[in-house]
Design a protein around this nucleic acid. Structure first.
Length: 416
RNA sequence: GUGGCCGUAGAUCAGUUGGUAGAUCACCGGAUUGUGGCUCCGGUUGUCGCGGGUUCAAGUCCCGUCGGUCACCCCA
């Protein structure tokens, strides 16, 4: 239908009936992260563009073509495409490392990427994420992965797959990239068009291409795990041991790479297998970024983090939306009764009872129908008769019963 | 960004070989002039996404556009 104005492509409204599901999910997330010692941090949605260019990295899709960037008073700004960069910036800017040796932050909110929208992928989407600063792992790495698995279980998302890999530290990552380019360059003609280009821009990404040509080409390519140094290997083995001890199922996927530059060492991804998700089945992803704090001007600080896509989590869960708009509906019959209804409603609310006054008039029948559709447990009927007698009629909708209650005892009667 | 599919009342959809629209749910009203969830009856709602074109005539064909969706890409 044609409207004078419509919403922006890829950006969705969440109507109240849907927000109820979001609240349920968010409460669960907050509870789980709280149990793991995380505290919420809130940072701005807009940052200086160079923050993302330097952290996420040039050559990544996010920076090259997906950011909502603009110039404000001659300064390049970007609406955040992901959460980690801003949190790290805040950590550095407030010198949090001088106040506590280890920081565990949780954040949640909208992110923006100018991709082509599809189910489970939107231009404004929401992520919940955690960051830990000051702990080199691998204990905390395993704990974080375990936390996500536990969270998903609590949300009722059962069929998930945990993939882990190690990219090695800064040195090995570069070394591996070189080695991979060396291996693939002679095969260049066999690669897909995209991957030919990636060979120079972002060779690691070729590893998780779905194109059969690329799959064939990388089949016997050197693995990161063959290249990482002893420290990296010890770190990765430590992670695996802890996950084993926790009995958290996982798969080592040497070809797992992720689209952001700042990752080092531990890398992980949790995928759903539900049919609702389609190709957008990455529910959460994260990894270690030991060099980023320093890169952004702070002291050398090991760090790890992850983010989960809330729209996708919601697709993977079956949380039903419970409709309950008010515990009590007041049905006044006529003008005088309506005035009294407002006063009674105020008294009930002061006592903590959610109340709605049906002010549209109409037949009593229609008003009671509405009480039903609101999910109210009780209704209060007031007409001239009740007003004259100084009572109201209190109906218990579930019990099909009703009784007159003296005006002064309404609050008590409703709450009992 | 590339390609495929789709776009009809608030929602889910039907609409026969082109002849200017229907069902169900929801909503409203009624079935004892003040009593609900079930049932029954009745009622409201659409510039058939938008803009062009073909035709005597288009929801139905063609083109464009916007939006959604699937795959790729990428990622949460």
């Amino acid at each position: 239908m044609s409207r004078a104005i419509s919403g922006v492509k890829g950006m969705n409204d969440l109507l109240p009936s849907e927000v109820a599901r979001w609240h349920a999910m968010e409460e669960t997330i907050r509870e789980v992260v709280r149990l793991h010692g995380y505290r919420e941090i809130r940072v701005p949605v807009i940052e200086h563009t160079p923050l993302y260019v330097r952290s996420v990295g040039e050559g990544t899709d996010i920076v090259d073509k997906e950011m909502y960037s603009f110039t404000f008073h001659d300064e390049p700004m970007t609406v955040r495409p992901e959460g980690t960069a801003g949190v790290v910036r805040a950590y550095v800017e407030h010198a949090v490392h001088t106040k506590e040796p280890v920081s565990r932050f949780y954040y949640e909110g909208p992110m923006f990427r100018g991709e082509r929208p599809a189910r489970g992928r939107y231009r404004q989407f929401h992520q919940a994420g955690c960051e830990v600063f000051g702990d080199p792992g691998p204990v905390v790495d395993a704990e974080m992965i375990d936390m996500i698995v536990a969270l998903f279980a609590r949300l009722g998302i059962k069929d998930v797959e945990v993939l882990v890999n190690s990219l090695g530290g800064k040195g090995t990552k570069a070394k591996y990239r070189e080695k991979l380019v060396e291996y693939l360059t002679p095969e260049k003609d066999a690669l897909s068009e995209d991957s030919k280009r990636r060979l120079s821009t972002n060779p690691l990404r070729i590893l998780d291409s779905k194109d059969p040509r690329d799959q064939a080409a990388i089949k016997d390519a050197p693995s990161v795990l063959d290249v990482i140094d002893d420290d990296d290997r010890a770190h990765f083995d430590g992670l695996r041991r802890h996950l084993d001890k926790l009995q958290t199922p996982y798969t080592v996927e040497p070809r797992l790479v992720r689209g952001l530059d700042y990752y080092s060492r531990t890398l992980f991804e949790i995928r759903g297998r539900g049919g609702e998700l389609g190709a957008q089945n990455t529910l959460a992803g994260g990894g270690r970024y030991d060099g980023l704090v320093e890169e952004l001007g702070g002291p050398a600080t090991p760090a790890i983090g992850f983010a989960a896509g809330l729209e996708r989590l919601l697709l993977a869960t079956e949380l039903p939306a419970k409709k309950l708009e008010a515990d009590v509906l007041i049905a006044p019959m006529g003008e005088r009764a309506a005035g009294e209804a407002l006063v009674i409603a105020r008294e009930l609310r002061a006592a903590g009872v959610p109340v709605v006054v049906e002010g549209r008039g109409g037949s009593l029948k229609s008003m009671l129908r509405r009480a039903n559709s609101l999910g109210s447990a009780k209704a209060i009927v007031i007409g001239d008769g009740e007003l004259d007698r100084g009572v109201v009629q209190l109906k218990d909708l579930a019990g099909h019963s009703q009784k007159d209650v003296p005006r002064a005892e309404i609050v008590l009667a409703v709450k009992s």
